[in-house]
């Protein structure tokens, strides 16, 4: 008799599960939202006028434990300006077949040019396609942004860009928050030392 009631108890557990909420995620149909700071694929950010934030210093490449980042610096000239200041990255590649998404490159970046998004659907069928070039990594041009090369629009020197960067991050897809409702619009020149 004990075994009889015992089996009822056992099946009762199974039966009760039929009325529980289903735990299975519906991934490809309803993709889940990862944690805000989930380490996904990188973004190379832009200043509010469209100039690139990357200055080609290679600190990200030096910080990378997997040697996944390749940077070649180039010199900005008055005719060909890609970033404020002297240098820009003429070649920027991240090899996602090597990248371990540790985020050390993000910590190393002095201009917050390199940040990470939460995008993770990266599988490809060739190793070549996993090497992301600068064109693929750069943030899209938002309204008010202009495709570089073009002269500095937000001030006379690169200092104006960096001092204003807290209230006007451009595309800085990372930890920075909106400076406030009246944070200056993209493309609008900042007053000196606004921050």
């Amino acid at each position: 008799m004990g075994t009889f009631t015992g089996s009822f108890k056992g099946f009762g557990v199974t039966f009760a599960h039929m009325f529980r909420k289903v735990v299975t995620t519906e991934y490809p149909f309803k993709p889940p939202t990862p944690a805000p700071r989930y380490h996904g694929r990188h973004i190379l950010n832009r200043h509010p006028d469209g100039l690139e934030k990357c200055i080609g210093c290679e600190l990200c490449a030096w910080a990378c434990p997997a040697d996944a980042i390749y940077v070649e610096g180039g010199d900005n000239t008055e005719e060909q300006r890609f970033s404020p200041g002297e240098r820009y990255a003429s070649v920027y590649q991240i090899n996602y077949a090597r990248c371990i998404f540790c985020g050390l490159c993000i910590e190393a970046c002095p201009t917050r040019s390199l940040t990470m998004s939460n995008e993770y659907e990266l599988a490809r069928d060739s190793r070549q396609d996993l090497i992301f070039t600068k064109e693929q990594l750069l943030a899209p041009l938002l309204p008010g942004m202009e495709q570089p090369p073009h002269p500095m629009r937000l001030g006379d020197s690169e200092k104006d860009y960096y001092l204003g960067s807290l209230t006007n991050p451009g595309t800085s897809a990372g930890a920075e928050r909106a400076g406030g409702a009246d944070a200056s619009q993209p493309g609008e020149p900042l007053s000196r030392g606004a921050a």
Binding site: P36, S117, N118, S172, R177
Partner: peptide, 24 residues
């Protein structure tokens, strides 16, 4: 030829904490 940009764009749209830089 801008599928990677589209991805970043769509991701930025979904991030409320980025609205200062993006969703004006």
């Amino acid at each position: 030829g801008r599928e990677e940009q589209l991805r970043i764009e769509n991701w930025m749209k979904a991030q409320n904490h980025l609205s200062g830089g993006v969703n004006r």
